[in-house]
Design a protein around this nucleic acid. Sequence first.
DNA 1: CCAGACGTTGTT
DNA 2: GTCTGG
DNA 3: CCAGACGTTGTT
DNA 4: GTCTGG
Length: 223
Amino acid sequence: MMCGRFYLDVQQDELMSYFNLATVMQLPPRYNIAPSQNIAAVLVSGRERRVVNLRWGLIPFWAKDEKIGYRTINARAETVESKPAYRAAFKQRRCLIPASGFFEWKAQKEGKQPYCIRPRHNALFAFAGLYEHWRNNKGEQLDTGTILVTDANAVVKQVHDRMPVILSPEHFESWLDPDNQNRSGLKEMLKPWPEDETDLYAVSRKINNPGNDNPECIAPLSL
DNA sequence: CCAGACGTTGTT
DNA sequence: GTCTGG
DNA sequence: CCAGACGTTGTT
DNA sequence: GTCTGG
């Protein structure tokens, strides 16, 4: 696991205030967002901060077919700058992906136990992401994205050794600014989220099936 | 030069 | 599109 | 990430 | 075992 499943259940006004947005649609609550599905992303387009939909799984602009997107749901923060699939997006097309929490699976003798990870005080996580525009052979455009991953903090390490890169609001503007070419400054932001701002609890295996999209997916499980 | 990859994690 | 391997 | 498919031809 | 679909 790394970051292959998350959820987003947020009110319009919370989303607007956390990301300093002028306007945004109320998003339907989603409890089991899986790769290849649409994810909401905050990005700067024409000097304006807005929310768009991206298909989760970044397809590089040069890709001949879209199947590469099944293997590009995450980008390693340590190498994202130089990987052919990501470096152009890292320079020009950075985004933030709002999440109420994310899921990781712990491998055990009895099988894999899913856990939900949530922010302790904030309403939301803001995952560091990249996006890309791709055209198929019919000329139709598809906007896709990926979530950066890094080492797990001490709390998440109980279940897995990697986790999404989560940015704090002080970094939003400089991460989103397409003109920001300060590569060392950008990489400096890609550190594990503080463990004392991280809560973790076991959830039902209902989360395993991407077809299950309801509050039972995030309900605490008593083990 | 051309051909082929371009991604992550976990498991063997 | 661009890099690596042959 | 997990779940589910993974093959061909011919007939309905 | 590995790929595709969600």
